[in-house]
Nucleic acid binder design. Structure first.
Lengths: 342, 342
DNA sequence: TTGTACGCGTTATCAT
DNA sequence: ATGATAACGCGTACAA
């Protein structure tokens, strides 16, 4: 392993000079700079980030904590984070929490030991002691996609999830639907909670009574969603439309509806959330609420790094709520048939 | 930031003793050990991995280089790698290469500077100078999923891709198909090359002449696959079956076939490769070649870490070729209609 | 413009 | 069983 000393020896200068060259210090003669650069090139020398980090207290590394990668939303998100961070000179340590508090806590410790410069949480639960403590410790961090239920003093960038489902339900109502069901996600994800509240608010605003039997739990889980959908279909008066907390759940609901020999959208309209790639496939054509994932992930990464580099005043909170967009495809059809309106 | 010295001072022992406690050395009296542990607990002390790495030359970090995360195959793979590594005490730095030589080279340098203990390449091209050099330098590494075209002295774990398409084509032939097309992937991915050779071999073994016009380029790209499929459908004598180099391409081909008002499998049978989640969806029901991604990723990670920890003799190559499995679903149907057989 | 010397937090070697 | 000290590779204050 070649070190700064090897370079110094061969270039016949001191370690300090080599260090200056590496760090683009202006206090070095053009001539010696070139001589040093030459040797660096020759020996294919690369400074040791660890040693550098010991002095500077900077590792140029961030930690990204996501619940899962099998949900395309997080996969796409992670890609943007890694790319953006890399462009700004930061490496990304990936941690997969499975929505498990303990795993997340463990990962936080690992990242702390590795002295990462900042923490990017894509999937916090509605409350989390370990994350709160980390925040209190003053470490640069940012929550995105999901946030706490109480977030006054917390940095976050999220979608206006409530507005998203509101638009979806509104769209269905304008299509003539009155019996609109909702398949919920997990109760301790802010996305899920907020999407549910948007559903309720839209019903309320349009004077449609809230019916408890139309709200079932899918918990972002395939099995549970299948079960929940079956319950909806077997209701004495089943819904004419179903809004799902995300696309993956809508996909599962779709399977149940089809195997019950019902037609989408003729018998049942369906709307998802996230606009994952497959939702646009001609076989699927899922109406859904889109969020600009790339933008969110990019801004999140940039903001975090600004915080790290103190470009942004440390006491100033980052709190951003992005607007969703309804993507109308085939699964909610046009006007609903008269017979279903009753 | 609390360091080993703080602990030592408060516990009234030397740094060395604290270090011994941290590293579970037997050479420390039970009494003092407890005293130290208590202080560690109190101050919530965590050893600095960087400083440790400086001495031990071990960072307990690996680099994972994947082409993309938007392909579910890599997303699932990355999840397993991260989990497996974590269980063995290693963190994972994620790098996304976009199949770009230069990006990959840049990432290799970044990882070298960070002194990662090993490199896991999920998506090398059929040849790559930067990777070859890394290998020559003696760093622990493992190629998986894709490998070089010439691999005598290289560690790799891959699927028997050739056997995979062979099984697919064989299945189609036994169903009565004779006009079987193949949509190729990118020429400099070993997966693509090997899958193509399996296609050719099956035709040969069953005495079906190879037809150049039946082989088109999809290059693992949506647009290109759509274009390629259109070409196939517009042939004077179009194929009765299409084998795609992966599921994502099959999904795209499917869109074209459907929008041409052709039926799958009645008019055209379709087979993919990878068995991504969505392939099993009731709307899709794609026949495909499955590989045990999880197993491959897990073995790969474990093998790499064995190499790092020298549990495995360093001169012994890891070369593993896993067997694929044909998953028969609806997109290739039963016996093909007489009229198509001609 | 350049060099010397120290310290970052830890482990390892040598004493004791 | 424990402590003092050097070393890992680098950056930087200070001196020259």
């Amino acid at each position: 392993m070649t070190t700064i000393k090897d370079i110094a020896r061969i270039a016949q200068v001191s370690d300090a000079t080599v260090s200056r060259v590496i760090n683009d210090s202006p206090l070095v003669k053009e001539e010696t700079r070139n001589k040093v650069l030459e040797v660096i090139e020759q020996l294919n020398y690369h400074p040791n980030t660890l040693a550098r980090g010991m002095k500077t207290k900077k590792t140029y590394t961030i930690g990204l904590l996501v619940a899962t990668l099998t949900n395309p939303f997080y996969a796409e998100t992670a890609k943007i984070v890694v790319d953006t961070a890399n462009n700004l000179g930061y490496a990304t340590i990936l941690c997969i929490t499975d929505n498990d508090r303990h795993k997340q806590k463990e990962y936080i410790n690992i990242l702390k030991q590795r002295k990462v410069d900042g923490f990017l949480f894509a999937s916090v639960l509605t409350e989390d002691k370990a994350v709160r403590e980390l925040i209190k410790s003053g470490a640069p961090y940012l929550l995105f996609n999901r946030r706490f239920s109480s977030c006054q003093d917390v940095n976050y960038i999220v979608l206006d999830n409530s507005a998203g489902t509101y638009m979806a339900v509104e769209h269905l109502i304008k299509l003539g639907h009155k019996k609109i069901a909702f398949i919920r996600g997990t109760h301790n994800f802010s996305t899920s909670v907020e999407r549910f509240s948007g559903y309720k608010k839209a019903l309320e605003d349009y004077g449609i009574p809230y019916r408890e039997e139309f709200v079932v739990d899918g918990q972002y889980d395939q099995e549970k969603t299948i079960h929940a959908t079956k319950i909806l279909l077997n209701l004495p008066t089943p819904p004419t439309a179903i809004v799902c907390c995300n696309d993956l759940m809508a996909l599962s609901a779709m399977e149940v509806i089809i195997s019950a020999n019902l037609k989408i959208p003729e018998d049942i309209a369906l709307i998802g959330f996230d606009n994952i790639d497959i939702a646009g496939h001609s076989l699927v054509q899922l109406t859904t609420v889109a969020q600009n994932k790339s933008l969110m992930a990019e801004i999140a990464t940039q903001s975090l790094i600004k915080m790290i580099e103190k470009t942004q005043p440390p006491d100033q909170l980052v709190q951003l709520v992005l607007k969703p967009q309804l993507i109308v495809r085939k699964t909610c059809g046009h006007k609903v048939a008269e017979k279903l309106q009753k």
